[in-house]
Design a protein around this nucleic acid. Sequence first.
DNA 1: GAAGATTGAAGCGTCAATCTTT
DNA 2: AAAGATTGACGCTTCAATCTTC
Lengths: 152, 152
Amino acid sequence: MSKAPAASARVLVHGIVATADLFLRESQRIFRPHGLSAAQFNVLNLLAERADGVGYSQRELADALLVDRSNVTGLVDRMTATGWVCRVDDVTDRRVYRIQLTEDGRRLWSNVAPIYAQVVSQVTECLSTVEITRGVAVLAKLQEAATRWSAP
Amino acid sequence: MSKAPAASARVLVHGIVATADLFLRESQRIFRPHGLSAAQFNVLNLLAERADGVGYSQRELADALLVDRSNVTGLVDRMTATGWVCRVDDVTDRRVYRIQLTEDGRRLWSNVAPIYAQVVSQVTECLSTVEITRGVAVLAKLQEAATRWSAP
DNA sequence: GAAGATTGAAGCGTCAATCTTT
DNA sequence: AAAGATTGACGCTTCAATCTTC
């Protein structure tokens, strides 16, 4: 494996952050007309794709979204206020809430998810299957390396 | 050019955002012991690499950092409070401030920048030169496509 | 003591509206 | 009118500390 020159490595890292920033900004513009934020859309996505109706605990939500547990409190607060999710007491453990999608939440997700999917497909149609596969592999290597670095 | 399956395209987009998130989180942990945030490090970087001593206007900083102009006000406020940058009145246009590095700011940057560079090189040493080149190219295509989408 | 949830303080980011200067 | 900077309102995120329940 040939050694990576420092300059282009830095360009790659900066490019990843800049591209993610761009995606985030643009996705906010998609969600905003629906009163939704990117973080809230991710919550909707998780809940909607879980068919068993049990829902996620806030801790599970935090782990899945890769954010701090304390963050989920406010996120769920706001989504409860708008009526898209609700907190249900867990029957076996009184410490935990099960967060579940409401009717309104599911309806909103049904409207917004296809729009988001289409934008993703439009933006990525400039890439070939090989490029996508290689890109995913590079990202996986980087994540692995970064994780290994953070916990030596 | 072969068509990109929707599923893997979405994995790629998610991977970019997740990797950037991971980088951001880890870089915060590097900067924090120095009382610095990632956003502030970027400001230091811009100012330090501009040798002419003229500095950036806040508008120029906003454009370079890809953030809203209003955001820069608070960022510069905080960095002025810690004494790392200062606002200097522009001599030709009384609307604009020139933001310049202080002695302290330059010293801090001299300490932190090599640490950051080394972490970047450690995390990216798992990649070959070819992988980096291809990765950068994919990101450039995506940014171009996303930008084109946002302003049709 | 450990785990789930919450709170308060702080920084970062957007947007809309305002002020000053050009 | 247009451009640079600022303000206020709001959401997202982290961290440290606290409360309740296991």
